[in-house]
Amino acid sequence: MALAALADPIRLAIVRQVSQVGDWERTCASFDLPVGKASRTHHFSVLRDAGVIEQRDEGPHRLTRLRRKEFDECFPGLLDLVLNEPRWDKPIGVRSADGAERGRRRTSQHSSHSSRGGNHGR
């Protein structure tokens, strides 16, 4: 579950951003992410369920901390490896604000319907 959580480029961006500050310094809205509120909520939930981050409510804000010590006890060296991985400007499969998928080449699919034979008109 932890590897799957860290494999997503949005979740990886969250982990990288929260790793650069102290515990409980980042609110959910303060992360620079190319997704809407519902997607943010989903990504934070996946990271919480995997044990990568912890969140707590403080007034109207939800604060986040990286569970580095706890995570390193279960997966020694994994976070360092992930955090030090080279970064790309445009991760594969990230959707832009207009909903278009960026970074992947799409191939055209031919229709499985044939105009020959079959049950036309029935």
Rank of each mutant, 00 (worst) to 15 (best):
L83H: 09
Q109A: 14
L12H: 07
A100G: 12
R104T: 15
N119S: 13
S45W: 10
E70M: 05
A5M: 01
S19H: 08
G93A: 09
L83W: 01
P60A: 14
P76R: 07
R48T: 09
S96I: 03
G93M: 08
S114Q: 13
S108F: 13
I92K: 14
A2K: 10
Q20M: 15
D72I: 02
R65V: 04
E73Q: 15
R67E: 10
C74N: 11
A38M: 12
H43W: 02
S30D: 10
T64H: 00
R65T: 02
D32V: 14
G118N: 09
G99K: 03
A100R: 14
F44W: 11
K69C: 06
V82A: 09
L3S: 15
A5C: 06
Q17M: 10
S115C: 15
P60C: 10
H43D: 09
P91N: 00
H120L: 12
F44A: 01
W88A: 15
G36W: 03
V18N: 03
H110R: 11
A4T: 13
C74P: 07
G118M: 02
S45Q: 11
L12K: 05
D23T: 06
D32C: 03
L33E: 06
I14W: 00
E73Y: 08
P9V: 06
I92R: 13
G117N: 10
A13G: 05
T27P: 00
E25N: 10
G93E: 09
D80W: 07
E70D: 14
G36A: 06
L78F: 11
P34T: 02
A5P: 00
H110T: 14
L78S: 05
F31H: 11
D98C: 08
R16W: 03
E101L: 10
G121Y: 07
P76T: 07
D49I: 02
R67Y: 06
S115I: 14
L79V: 02
R26N: 12
R87M: 04
G77L: 04
L83Q: 11
P76Q: 04
D72T: 06
R95E: 05
S30Y: 01
N84G: 11
H110I: 14
S96L: 14
L63R: 07
R116T: 12
S108R: 11
H120S: 14
